[in-house]
């Protein structure tokens, strides 16, 4: 049975831009997918539709057999709890400590609402769990630091700890290492994949580095101008074929 089932997903932005055209994709539990495609091919839009940050124009997105597109606001919140998101720009709340940011991973999980995710009022179990998550990404010593004083690599670690705190089944990552230098990028990629394998999470990760894509991905999925044009096991593909994904795009643009 598929954990994620996308059926004929189309997304048109209000300004008329069709970012996704009739995309269908099934993902099994525990699969590791890398999403590729040129700038503007619709990768981010695809991930954002999967968590309901963008509303699909038509089609179905089933997560654990629940449709995101037609769900109510409450149902959507329930589905989102199962999905952890890692962003390129980290998206931490900068005025607050790393520890507080990690606690906010709990924001959707707790039935007591906001107060169980606030450092001041959270239960000691929750605070301990947040510390464990920070320790897992080797950031325990920075718990009390404001996140805007941390380096990019450190911030992404905190963001990963926040995702851990959320305890999701699915991880969506939108260019998680694109803002990092090669070394920090490699470290964060390793960390993220270690955690994903440890917990047996299902992951869909956008990457622009083809080396990383071949190294980490089990299955590579490619988008071109909003259409799904590649879906293959990473074992059966080489870098040349992947390059085609970007060059063909260029050709299409030149003729357009």
């Amino acid at each position: 049975m598929s954990l994620i089932k996308v059926q004929n997903l189309t997304k048109q932005y209000p300004d008329g831009e069709t970012a996704l055209k009739d995309v269908s994709l099934e993902v099994k539990s525990g699969e590791g997918i890398v999403l590729l495609g040129a700038n503007g091919s619709g990768k981010s839009t695809f991930l954002r539709c999967l968590v309901g940050l963008e509303k699909a124009t038509s089609g179905k997105i089933l997560i654990d057999n629940q449709d995101i597109v037609s769900s109510s606001k409450k149902q959507l919140q329930e589905i989102r709890k199962k999905i952890g998101v890692v962003f390129q720009k980290f998206n931490l709340v900068n005025n607050l400590s790393a520890f507080q940011n990690v606690l906010f991973g709990n924001l959707g999980q707790s039935n007591k609402g906001f107060w169980s995710s606030l450092n001041l009022t959270a239960s000691s179990e929750e605070r301990e769990k947040a510390m464990e998550c920070l320790a897992r990404v080797s950031m325990a010593e920075f718990a009390d630091r404001r996140t805007d004083t941390l380096s990019g690599g450190q911030r992404q670690r905190v963001a990963i700890a926040r995702m851990l705190m959320q305890d999701p089944e699915i991880v969506l990552a939108d260019e998680p290492v694109a803002s990092l230098d090669p070394r920090a990028g490699r470290e964060v990629m390793n960390l993220l994949w270690e955690i994903i394998e440890e917990k047996g999470l299902t992951v869909m990760c956008i990457l622009h580095q083809l080396d990383f894509a071949l190294e980490y991905g089990e299955r590579l999925v490619g988008l071109q101008k909003g259409s799904l044009t590649l879906d293959r096991s990473a074992a059966n593909i080489n870098k040349k074929e992947l390059n085609w994904l970007y060059e063909a795009e260029k050709v299409v643009k030149n003729y357009a």
Partner: peptide
């Protein structure tokens, strides 16, 4: 960004406002 990150955790509107 940070507002979306908290919304994506499944938090309610009020929690997102208070948190970010």
């Amino acid at each position: 960004g940070p507002i979306e990150a908290l919304r994506a955790t499944g938090a309610s509107r009020v929690s997102v406002i208070l948190g970010s």
